[in-house]
Design a protein around this nucleic acid. Structure first.
Lengths: 144, 144
DNA sequence: GGAAACCTTGGAGTTGCTCCAGAGTCAAGC
DNA sequence: GCTTGACTCTGGAGCAACTCCAAGGTTTCC
């Protein structure tokens, strides 16, 4: 199949497929006489693998290492475990900080419930006060 | 003060300060005879405001709009509310998807507890099965 | 035979910085 | 007077993971 068909089949943008090739995640495909890329089921599967990993928010570099493990089945999979663990650690750290952030923003939003002139806006007051180094509702709540 | 002092005072990298200037968030400062940037308390405060907003993970474009509201206090603050609301919506959507992701990764990690040869690794099996379009532990759990 | 749809390459743009090269400026020490 | 080191300047490249575009070649369909 050609690149457009592969794109339609997998829901991956044509540019993204070419990007994965340039990044070394997809091997350079055979070319037709006119220079068009030709793909088979193996590439389709490999692309689906990549997208599944991306759906798990893994960086492309890590996906490349997983593909190496798939390509060289003799090695052991300790590295695979470590990649998934690292991904989980990153995700959990980010989740914690985003939970804190949500509290801060909610507190900030609470400072102003209806439109006023900017001079009287609680949100802007908070942000300006924070810039002065004063306690602000958002970070006061977050660190309490 | 010069840029290095402002950087030390605020904990913001020198390059970042120049970047904010180029992005239009900080007005071009006065220059000394030798061309060095000279900053006063007003710029210091504006930079602190920007960093506080960045700590709330706001995009620079939104911060620019907040600064406009600060600079033009006569307008009303409805736009400010909308920016904070939009930021909260973005954050909450991202939080929800990251929670789902965490479940998926934890389920995936559970497939392999100790190093095996890659051919027997439950994690790789799952990812390859997912690429085949089969049900995978990670997304099966997440969508259940 | 002509138009529309497809493919090619290379490069620029996105966000928010961070780093670097090459050059100028300035104060302190010998 | 000269060197050394710390500071500053500009412009440009690099990161991640794409996305979009221009300019051109190819195929397909009517």
């Amino acid at each position: 199949m050609r690149i457009g068909e592969l794109a339609a089949l997998t829901g991956v943008d044509i540019d993204t497929i070419r990007y994965y090739e340039k990044a070394g995640l997809l091997p350079p495909p055979i070319r037709e006489a006119n220079g068009y890329r030709r793909y088979g089921p193996a590439q389709h599967e490999r692309l689906a693998f990549i997208r599944h990993c991306r759906a798990l928010d893994m960086p492309l570099a890590d996906i490349g290492r997983l593909l190496d493990a798939v390509d060289h089945p003799s090695a052991d999979c300790a590295g695979v475990n470590e990649l998934v663990d690292a991904q989980l650690r990153r995700l959990r750290a980010r989740l914690a900080s985003m939970h804190a952030l949500e509290k801060q923003l909610a507190a900030l939003r609470h400072q102003c419930s209806s439109p006023h002139p900017s001079t009287e806006c609680g949100i802007l007051h908070e942000l300006v006060a924070a810039a002065h180094g004063e306690a602000c509702a958002c970070h006061r709540v977050a660190t309490a």
